[in-house]
Design a protein around this nucleic acid. Structure first.
Lengths: 110, 110
DNA sequence: CTGATCTACAACCATTTGGTTGTAGGATAT
DNA sequence: ATATCCTACAACCAAATGGTTGTAGATCAG
C-alpha cells in the first residue's frame, strides 16, 4: 500500500522544517492548542520576525496552517504533514525488518 | 513510556540528515544491502567527496555506521536512529489524537 | 480620530550547507 | 616494486539558513 506519495522536494521541506528545536516546539504547542503568531513569539528568546519565519517554514512544509481571525493569524497543527513524515520512516523500518527476517531465514536454512 | 530520549541537538542532526534526497536514498540502500563509500559514489551524479560528506552527515546523525574492511569502508544502516525519529513523530501524533478525542468528548457532553 | 497591536516583508549579516578540486596515505593486485 | 584503488581531509565557492532591524498596512480600543 503506497499512501499518497510526497515528492522529494516536499520531503526535503518536511524534514528540514523538523530539523530545528524551536520549530519542533511550535509544532508541539499548536498541536495541543491554538496560538497567534505573536502569541508564539512571546515564548522564545528571539524577535517576532524570527518566529514569523519559523512559522512560514512550517507552513511551506504543510506541518501547520494559518487562519486569519481579526488582526491575528491563528496557527494550527496539520495532522497530514506529520503523518506523512512518519509514514516514510515506517517504510524504511519495514524494509529493515524484511532484511532482518530474510537474514534470519537464510540462517534457518542452514 | 518515554523511550531513550534524544537531545535537541541529536534531533536536529537526525532530521537535518533526512532533509536531503540523496541522503534518504543512501539510507534506503544501505538498509537493504551493503555498500562501500565508493560503491555508493557511483550511484549519484556528484563527486566522490560529496558522497563522502553525505555519509558523514548520516553517521553524525546515527542513521548509518561505517566499518573498515580492507581498504574499503562498509556503510550499513543503523536501525536505532530511524526508530528514534519515528518515535518522536509518533509522540506528536499521539498528542494530536488525544486532542481530537478531547474535543470529541467535549462535544459529546453537550 | 488616535494610538496601540498584529502582521507582512524587505534588507542586511554571519554561519552552515552542498557542492567542487586537489593532495596525501593506506591497502591490493600484478 | 609499482601502479591502482579507496579513503580522508583541506581549501574554496555559491546558495541557503537563522537571526537581526526597520518600514508599512490592517485591525481594534478608547
Amino acid at each position: 500500500m503506497v499512501v499518497d506519495q510526497l515528492s522529494e522536494t516536499e520531503l526535503d521541506r518536511l524534514f528540514q522544517a523538523l530539523a530545528d528545536a524551536t520549530r519542533r516546539d511550535i509544532v508541539r504547542r499548536v498541536t495541543v492548542g491554538e496560538y497567534s503568531v505573536s502569541g508564539l513569539a512571546t515564548l522564545y528568546a528571539m524577535s517576532f520576525a524570527a518566529v514569523q519565519k519559523h512559522v512560514a517554514v512550517l507552513q511551506r512544509a504543510s506541518l501547520i496552517t494559518k487562519e486569519k481571525r481579526g488582526r491575528e493569524q491563528i496557527v494550527r497543527g496539520n495532522h497530514d504533514g506529520l503523518q506523512k513524515a512518519r509514514q516514510l520512516l515506517d517504510e524504511y523500518e519495514a524494509i529493515w525488518r524484511q532484511r532482518v527476517e530474510r537474514i534470519a531465514d537464510i540462517l534457518a536454512e542452514k
